[in-house]
Design a protein around this nucleic acid. Structure first.
Length: 214
DNA sequence: TAGTACCC
DNA sequence: CACG
């Protein structure tokens, strides 16, 4: 199958659950602009491995932009206006990300999405993210918008209980996923990234997760 | 507890 | 901090 067939085939939104939409390749037109916007963000707030409340460290390296950033340490998970590494506010959320997230949310049925936080997660081959819920935000009626870049991944879309068997959702460079409503608190995670090299991104996956945290 | 280790 |  040639690439144009894949693009056409994959370009239709896919409903993964009642309030979970996969928008294949949705971010592709913006990718270069998006990466340009990300560069200064990561200069100001480099990727780092945060500590879990149990004292261990996360396999994923992360950064943030926006007025709030997700942090984890011995005291627990929370959002903070300051980067604990620099002591300064997180870099501003780039306009291209704000508009892309709003467009994606709108396409999935969530109008007026104005995120104030963007987690930037960095995965090397072998990196995984175990099942968890996003529950540190103030308003669970606001959706989550997730943008995949680089190496492909298998997203685990679980249920409301950790023990619910997750759907395995393949995610590729440029895919955008939106979830909210009754699915907002679903457990989710990422299987270990398979070794490989993405033509544009190299041996890494970067995931941008936009939320309204405050 | 967004983690690991694995029966104590 | 029991246990998929």
């Amino acid at each position: 199958m040639i690439q144009s067939d894949l693009d056409l085939f994959g370009s239709q939104p896919q409903s993964l659950a009642s309030q979970v939409m996969l928008l294949p390749g949705f971010a592709l037109p913006e990718v270069e602009v998006l990466l340009d916007a990300l560069r200064p963000v990561l200069r100001a707030a480099p990727f780092r491995h945060m500590q879990t409340p149990g004292g261990l460290h996360m396999a994923v390296a992360l950064s943030n932009c926006g007025s709030l950033g997700w942090v984890s340490d011995a005291r627990g998970y929370r959002y903070s206006p300051l980067d604990p590494l620099s002591g300064k506010p997180w870099p501003a959320l780039p306009e291209v990300l704000l508009t892309l997230a709003a467009r994606a949310a709108s396409q999935a049925g969530f109008e007026g999405f104005v995120p104030d936080a963007c987690l930037v997660n960095h995965y090397l081959p072998g990196t995984r993210l175990s099942l968890h819920q996003d529950r540190n935000e103030q308003d669970f009626s606001q959706p989550i918008v997730s943008i995949s870049l680089g190496l492909p991944a298998v997203f685990l879309l679980g249920g409301m209980q950790r023990s619910d068997r997750p759907q395995h959702v393949p995610l590729s460079h440029g895919d955008v996923m939106v979830w909210g409503g009754e699915d907002r608190l679903r457990f989710h995670g990422v299987l270990p990234i398979k070794p490989g090299k993405h033509e544009r991104m190299g041996e890494r996956r970067i995931n941008l997760t936009l939320r309204k945290a405050g």
